[in-house]
Design a binder for these strands. Structure first.
Length: 495
RNA sequence: GGCCCCAUCAUCUAAUGGUUAGGAUUCCAGAUUUUCAUUCUGGCCAUACGAGUUCGAAUCUCGUUGGGGUCACCA
């Protein structure tokens, strides 16, 4: 179990609770606990980061799978500015992808009294102390140490200070960290990670001179007080964990399970940053991705279940276990996301599709050929934005004709063919379905004794303004006879 | 630089110490499609390197190299 192992204290400081859980874990590789509480604890940046969504998703899945709770906490101890708005942005993104947190959102900025109480408790128990060293003195100390090629660390000068404090100095509060030995983080992803106290620790500050608490202190206090049993977070936090264990230990709190999930990297192999493109989750909505595709993509980054690629929320909920997470970082590649997105679009009901397309400016609810249109197009689009474009290419008469298409598909002989086809359409009686139009095309082809391409290419230019697109019979069925004739006339009148 | 983590196709990944190292995405080719896309079939492509343990190593150990993270009165 996570503990501080000093040569002095051989006895275990572990709560029986944790020992029991470990035993369960050993007996049942796929752990199911009665009580699993996870949390997502972002700092208020104004939007939900794609990497944040991944850890939130994994935390959510694990909590829900065990019938537990998934909590949301805003880490705003720094200074409160737009925290409400930032939290709202996160909840909005959660809502879009279908994640839901339990309970009320906790804001650290409104819990300052709690942190002060626990800092005072440590002070009273002699587990923390006031340090009157100024920032300037600290900087000077660090400079000297660095010059001597030593690790920069606090020199414990006020650790056992009993004299009178210097005049007019605001004190910071430092916690008494172990001076020797090691701290082992029992991580569910990385395994046991041993940190040598002498290498990484000093009496770090838990409260600033102005009385506000620092990160490693509040995280531990909050996770403990909120009853968090499983901390699933980015592995950039792994090196913070020993400090948090020091706090847990000093306060006598049970140490949770840690799962440090590897980072998502960009193509250069670095941590994903804003300049790598879309890091804001809501950008994915704008770009026409579906929440299902995004979540499916994220859950497969660093986690797998055999050869399975497609996971519904229900399947994720049934199969996800944080101890199956990979140890290595993964690179974010859009091709797979695109593939997943097109998969989900293809398999989506037309009603749902119709609803989602409204966000992209396409209103089809009352269109009488809606089904034909969507069935034809949903196999062709990678994103909803593409889909919207394709729809407009059919519904809106082409503003002009592509030069290359004209040259390749609209020859001198084409005019007569198109005129013949126009006549056939006018005399074709009632035309509704793609097969009706296809029949007319067949008739003309037979009558003129030409190949399908002879009529297909010029007709395509007329209808679409270019040489690619869905089946012509489908396009005609969607826009109707009158519009078809009008578009043919427009091409014939061209030049 | 100290500490920590990581290392299977270009990418995401699979493989009780025994498989011709599997799947998926991308890419390429063929088939279907009047076009394009879809779909289907096939193909290319990997255990970073070096020792050791073992009858046998992608898998265990050590080292090397490479990459990443982190070192605040930020979170």
């Amino acid at each position: 179990m996570s503990a501080i192992d000093t040569p002095k204290s051989k006895f275990s400081i572990l709560p029986a609770f944790n020992i029991a859980l470990t035993k369960i874990a050993q007996l049942h590789p796929k752990r199911i606990y009665n009580m699993v509480v996870t949390r997502f604890a972002p700092s208020p940046t104004g939007y939900l980061h794609i990497g944040g969504l991944r850890t939130a998703l994994l935390s959510y899945l694990w909590a829900r799978r065990n019938g537990g709770k998934f909590l949301l906490r805003i880490e705003d101890t720094d200074f409160s500015r737009n925290d409400e708005a930032a939290a709202l942005a996160i909840v909005e993104a959660f809502k879009w992808v279908g994640l839901e947190h339990d309970g009320t959102i906790e804001y650290q900025s409104s819990r300052l009294a709690i942190y002060q109480e626990y800092a005072q408790k440590l002070l009273d128990e002699g587990k923390a102390y006031k340090c009157y060293m100024s920032k300037e003195e600290l900087d000077a100390l660090r400079e000297q140490q660095t010059a001597r090629k030593e690790r920069a660390k606090y020199d414990n000068r006020y650790r056992d200070f009993t004299g009178t404090p210097p005049e007019g100095r605001e004190a910071v509060i430092r916690i008494k960290a172990p001076l020797e030995g090691s701290i082992t983080v029992h991580d569910g992803v990385k395994g046991d990670v041993v940190f040598n106290v002498a290498d990484i620790l000093d009496d770090f500050i838990i409260a600033r001179a102005d009385g506000t608490p620092t990160y490693n202190f509040v995280v531990a206090v909050d996770d403990a007080l909120m009853g968090v049993t499983d901390v699933i977070r980015g592995d950039d936090h792994l090196s913070n964990t020993p400090k948090q264990i020091v706090v847990y230990d000093a306060l006598g709190f049970a140490i949770p399970h840690f799962f440090h999930v590897p980072m998502i990297h960009n193509h250069e192999g670095k941590k994903l940053s804003k300049r790598d493109g879309a890091t804001d989750v809501m950008m994915y909505k704008t770009m026409g991705y579906t929440p299902e595709a995004l979540l499916n993509f994220l859950v497969r980054l660093g986690w797998s279940h055999g050869d399975q690629e497609i996971f519904s929320m229900a399947e994720m909920l049934e199969l996800f276990d944080p101890s199956d997470i990979n140890r290595s970082a993964s690179v974010y590649n859009v091709e797979k996301l695109d593939w997943l997105n097109s998969h989900y679009i293809k398999n989506m009901s037309n009603d749902k599709l119709c609803e989602l397309l409204e966000f992209h400016g396409v209103m089809l609810v009352s269109h009488d050929k809606r089904e034909i249109l969507l069935d034809a197009l949903k196999e062709r689009a990678k994103t909803l934005v593409e889909m919207a474009t394709l729809i407009n290419e059919i519904l809106v008469r082409p503003a002009g004709f592509d030069e290359a298409a004209l040259k390749k598909g609209y020859k001198e002989e084409s005019k007569a063919i198109l005129q013949t086809f126009s006549e056939a359409l006018k005399n074709g009686g009632e035309l509704h379905l793609p097969t009706d139009y296809h029949h007319v095309m067949e008739t003309v082809v037979a009558q003129l004794e030409i190949g399908f391409g002879k009529i297909g290419q010029p007709l395509r230019v007329a209808l679409m303004g270019k040489l690619s697109g869905p089946g012509l019979d489908t396009v005609m069925a969607i826009i109707g006879v009158d519009e078809t004739l009008a578009r043919i006339d427009a091409l014939l009148a061209h030049q």
